[in-house]
Design a protein around this nucleic acid. Structure first.
Length: 643
DNA sequence: CTAGGGTTAG
């Protein structure tokens, strides 16, 4: 070994980034070391496995290797199996089969089978299984373990079980794989049975149970296993936080996050994204800021996934300014999720123009938008009334980027036309669509009929909905609202009667507000003990002042105009969003912004009241409803009364 | 090198 070879190897050992690697690679080219099999193998391993965003560079290096050995092929196959296009991994494997220099070994099959599992191709998986069999490698423990997970990923629990049962001496990993396999296929009992049969368990086996339970929505079982576990690690905590956040149990997620720190452990990137996701969903702005502070201190702001989650949190907590700041200044690196989240943030806040500009900027930096990016941008266009831009974007998606529109994209287009009052265009668009419209598509059109008071079309649409999703409370409410605004009271009564007859209950509305880092939830006329009285008292005072100073007149028919009405004769005055606002005004100090999160859409009367409050009391209210943000300031709302 | 945790839309 000569001295430049030694230098190169020690440099590679310290290599941390792609740029670093490129420098070393230049050195290797200059000293003619690039064809040294050991060094070339090291380069590949770093590119394919260790370094971020280096896979493409690794592929280019690979192309220049005259006759790659098995290790080199396996490394490439491995890197590609975890990439966005795992199909490429199998293609690389096929190239190896065609080459005269190398034959597949057990690693080749472990990696390619993982690739097949990642893109859920049973066909590929079975073929690889056969080839492994021909090479006498299908009984290899690692290959077999991957076979178990591949079959489970592809939905074949029986084949997975067979692959496991044929193992004479399964190790822990193989046992974990069969437990996971059972969970993947929805067989909780099978997973529990396997877990109990395991002759040995390490912490990972427990973590597998936690993950399986939370993914199945069995939060209580997950909690119980968590308490039972003898030793917990970072993954256990992360799994629990993410799982609870994902299933809407935000307070528990916050609780586990605090507890983790009390146990003297440090939050990692996964628990941070999990807790931020809980903040975003719950609208917990103050808690989000605390997490942000921790991120800055501990250096997590450099990790893309965490800063993406933070950007989303600020946007969903109503602070688009902070979201913008995170996007523009905090993120050294951005990926497609960052750009898409920023666009979605703009969309929620009604900043259609900004979203479209950002989309073009994204194209300019050479990043390829994906299907989700297009949903966000179309959503932005429809909520801001940018019809032309929306059509242009849709056209670009199919013609330039060759992305096949999904039902959600079609839904955005229906919304784009419908919301703008182009009901005929919206209807024709549905008829011309190459895929079968689902209930969501028709519901979107029904919403548009409601905004633009078109009874005839609404009735036609409702017929479609009655076939696809007859018991949806929102649809009935929407139809009854359309009858109400057009004065068809008999029809209103008929819809209501059919709802009672068929025992269709409307979704109860709730609103949340965060005061002193505690979240308070209100439902119609109700709230936490000791708090509800305070809210009512303040609300009475507010309404009086609005009538005297703001000229407020409660709309007589407004109960019936509710988009997702929470009727009952006097219900409007007790709507959860009014109670939450009143409580916030009673408790929060002067000058602070009142932030409310609501599960349904804001009702018309509440919308009017909030505009008046912002004027009479000179304060700012931000309401996040089911689909967007309303920022009330100086007597008007950012949605321009269009929602 | 095989098993376990993640952010974006609806």
């Amino acid at each position: 070994m000569n001295s430049s070879e030694q230098l190169c190897i020690s440099l590679l050992r310290e290599c941390k980034t792609l740029n670093n690697l490129k420098q070393i690679h230049a050195f290797a080219l200059k000293t003619r070391l690039e064809n040294d099999p050991f060094i070339a193998g090291k380069f590949l391993l770093l590119c394919a496995v260790s370094l971020a965003d280096a896979l493409d560079y690794g592929r280019r290096i690979f192309l220049h290797i005259p006759s790659p050995d098995v290790f080199m092929y396996n490394t490439l196959v491995r890197g590609l199996s975890e990439s966005e296009s795992p199909q490429q991994s199998v293609i690389a494997y096929i190239k190896m089969r065609r080459s005269s220099t190398s034959q597949p070994d057990s690693f080749s099959f472990a990696f390619t089978l993982k690739a097949a599992a990642n893109y859920k191709s049973l066909n590929t998986g079975v073929q690889l299984h056969c080839q492994a069999l021909n090479h006498g490698l299908d009984t290899h423990l690692f290959v077999r373990t991957t076979l178990v997970s591949m079959y489970a990923e592809c939905g074949c629990i029986n084949s997975a079980r067979k692959a496991f049962d044929e193992l004479s001496q399964p190790n822990v990993v193989a046992w974990n794989a069969i437990v996971t396999a059972c969970f993947r296929c929805g067989d909780l009992k099978g997973a529990e049975l396997a877990f109990n049969q395991m002759p040995f368990r390490n912490m990972t086996s427990w973590n597998v149970m936690l993950a399986g339970y939370t993914k199945a929505g069995e939060l209580e079982l997950a909690r119980r296993s968590f308490l039972e576990m003898p030793v917990k690690d970072a993954v256990s905590w992360s799994t629990l936080i993410v799982g609870f956040a994902h299933h809407g149990s935000f307070y528990e997620a916050f609780g586990f996050f605090r507890e983790l720190q009390r146990f003297g452990m440090r939050p990692n990137e996964v628990s941070l994204t999990g807790v931020l996701s809980a903040c975003a969903q719950a609208g917990a702005f103050e808690f989000g800021k605390i997490v942000h502070g921790y991120m800055e201190k501990a250096g997590f702001n450099r990790i893309i996934s965490v800063s993406n989650a933070l950007l989303d949190t600020y946007a969903k907590c109503g602070n688009i300014g902070m979201a913008r700041l995170v996007f523009a200044w905090m993120m050294e690196k951005k990926n497609i999720v960052s750009w898409t989240s920023m666009m979605a943030g703009f969309a929620m806040h009604g900043f259609g123009k900004e979203a479209v500009e950002l989309f073009h900027e994204m194209e300019d930096v050479g990043l390829r938008p994906d299907g989700i990016t297009f949903i966000s941008i179309l959503y932005a266009c429809s909520h801001a009334g940018l019809i032309e831009q929306g059509c242009e974007v849709f056209h670009k998606m199919t013609e330039v980027y060759k992305i096949e529109p999904s039902i959600e994209h079609y839904g955005c287009m229906v919304d784009l036309f419908g919301r703008a009052g182009l009901l005929k265009e919206a209807y024709e668009f549905i008829i011309r669509m190459p895929i079968e419209p689902n209930a969501i598509i028709w519901r979107t059109l029904l919403g548009a009929c409601s905004i633009h008071k078109n009874v005839r079309l609404a009735e036609r649409v409702k017929e479609q909905l009655s076939e696809l999703d007859p018991d949806n409370s929102g649809d009935h409410v929407l139809l009854s609202n359309i009858y109400a605004v057009t004065g068809k009271w008999k029809d209103v009564a008929a819809v209501r009667r059919s709802m009672t007859d068929r025992r269709i209950k409307k979704t109860p509305g709730w609103s949340m507000i965060e005061v002193d880092k505690v979240m308070y939830t209100f439902v119609v006329g109700e709230g936490p003990n000791g708090v509800i009285e305070e809210a009512y008292e303040k609300l009475g005072e507010i309404m009086l002042r609005l009538k005297v100073e703001g000229g407020y007149i409660p709309e007589i028919g407004s109960v019936l105009h509710d988009i997702e009405e929470e009727e009952k004769e006097d219900a409007v005055s007790r709507h959860s969003e009014k109670l939450a606002v009143a409580f916030g005004m009673a408790r929060l100090c002067q000058g602070s912004i009142i932030r409310i999160v609501k599960n349904l859409r804001v009702c018309k009367d509440c919308h009017t009241v909030m505009k008046l409050i912002s004027e009479v009391y000179k304060l700012e209210i931000v309401v996040r409803d089911r689909s967007r943000f309303h920022s009330f300031k100086d007597g008007s709302c950012s949605c321009r009364d269009f929602w």
